[in-house]
Write a protein that binds this DNA or RNA. Sequence first.
DNA 1: TTGAAAGCGCTAACAA
DNA 2: TTGTTAGCGCTTTCAA
Lengths: 339, 339
Amino acid sequence: MVTIKQIAAELDVSPTTVSNVIHGNTKEVSPQTIQRVRKKIEELQYIPNMNARSLARSSSKMIGLIIRYPTMEGKNVVQDPFNSELIGVIENEVRKLGYFLMLYASDKADEIQKMAITWNVDGIISLGLNAAECRKMKENLKIPLVFIDCYFQDDDESYTNVGLKDRECAKRITEYLIGMGHKKIAFLADNLVGVDYERWQGYREALEEHRIPVQKDSFFQIGFGTAGIIETYDKVFRRISEFTALFFASDYYASFAVNYFYDKGIRVPEDISVVGFDDNIFARNTRPRLTTMRQNPSEKGRTAVAQVLRLIKGERIPVLNIRLDAELVIRDSVMDIRK
Amino acid sequence: MVTIKQIAAELDVSPTTVSNVIHGNTKEVSPQTIQRVRKKIEELQYIPNMNARSLARSSSKMIGLIIRYPTMEGKNVVQDPFNSELIGVIENEVRKLGYFLMLYASDKADEIQKMAITWNVDGIISLGLNAAECRKMKENLKIPLVFIDCYFQDDDESYTNVGLKDRECAKRITEYLIGMGHKKIAFLADNLVGVDYERWQGYREALEEHRIPVQKDSFFQIGFGTAGIIETYDKVFRRISEFTALFFASDYYASFAVNYFYDKGIRVPEDISVVGFDDNIFARNTRPRLTTMRQNPSEKGRTAVAQVLRLIKGERIPVLNIRLDAELVIRDSVMDIRK
DNA sequence: TTGAAAGCGCTAACAA
DNA sequence: TTGTTAGCGCTTTCAA
């Protein structure tokens, strides 16, 4: 391992000088020396020791990506393409900006805190944690913190978040459904918190504005795992005549439903219309293709990284709570039932 | 930030003692002192500084996960569920064993090397790199190195690899096809190196053993991106009458094909039989459901982590090149065409 | 323009 | 059983 000391020794200069050259404190060093040092660094293939550097300064050039990942085998096999793309983009951005990514899957605030302190990470991006978890992190950690897709009840907007206009977008696709003559629309999600709550609200707002009564039992909570999903869909199936359209909070569930109906001999969209949300691979890889709202995970990831970096550099962030837009993609899973 | 020194000071013992307690060098410390130190650590919420620790010893408790990730937006949107699950499992295992995961997406040996040295990582797991890249890493890096799904031409088995019995498994599913009366079987993959080469070989062996001539033009190289796939499938479509079955090197392509054929009015399996490989979400999320070979990404990930850890601990590894098995899953995409 | 020296927090050899 | 001390590689202040 080549060290600064070695380089200094070979060149008969001090470590300080070498360090200065490395960090581009070029005004303090003569052009000559700079050249010599640079050459030597190249020649000896010097690679800095980040552990030493992190120790000396109090920062590490490391960004922690906290994520709630499906950790139980078999369960939770919803290999969410959204997460997947996001991780890829974030790693990429982080690296491009000269930082490193520590991936850490946990939802326990104290564990996360430990990790952050133990490694001296410069900032954290948190993905898929709920509001309570995010809030705890925020309380405990004194470092730059950016959340993705988190909704905080208390509209204390001191959280830096990158999200989506979930409510507005859900409203838009519901309005599309209404525009196609649908009035009896069910909403399906695996919970009603955070992102899904917002989508649900959007759905309700659309109905209300069109004077369509929102039935209590037009919400279905999708059960856990394949068995849970099927159980829920069985319920829907029994009451299928009550609805003309189904709004799923995510493409995965919508796509699963389309296949479920296929197995039951129910035609989409002839017998029932279906819309999803996200426009991921499932939407395109289903027949009929899903009508859905397209969001851009890459943009989310890039924005999140940009935000932590601003925070790290101490810049003031004008908009703390960024909400990206999504776009209605009309495909083949909705029928026009206006006469 | 609480340091060992502080704890030592408050207890009026030396840092060494504290360090010893922390590392369980308990035989050198009196039970009394141990208790006191433990209490203080708890009380002060001491969290070790890994940078300092890494610097002092020459190891970091960090494992690098090198991966070739789809970095270009839009392109490469094959959000491979396999990769996704693997990353999750590896992070989980690594963490359970008290290590940390640095995620690094690159295929350039020198960049990887730099990362490894700069952070002093204890070991590396490499995912999705080709043989040449792996070999370079192996040459340059002196640290424990485990590859996933790599095939090295030179049967120099000094590489630690965790793979699949690709050839054998591909042969098995081909034999199943043959058993169902198929003789005119095409093989489709996006390349013929590494894993896919082995699968192709398995396919060929099965045919040869059953005295079925292997036609040169029964291999289709699938093009890049959605456009590339469709272009390839158009070719297949034109020659569809030449085949009774299609063997895709992965579920993603098989699933895409099923949908493609649906759009063209070709029925699977009535008009053409289709098999995939992997048994991931695509296989189950397609109608008809895909007949395929089921592999277990979680097992792969766990095994890989176990191997690096053995290497790190200096244990001798009995089997360097582990090849896991896969299982034939018969579903609805193959027709029995024996009369 | 350059260098000496102290210190970041922790470990480990050695001494007491 | 406990403590002293040097040092890991780098940064940074301050002096030369």
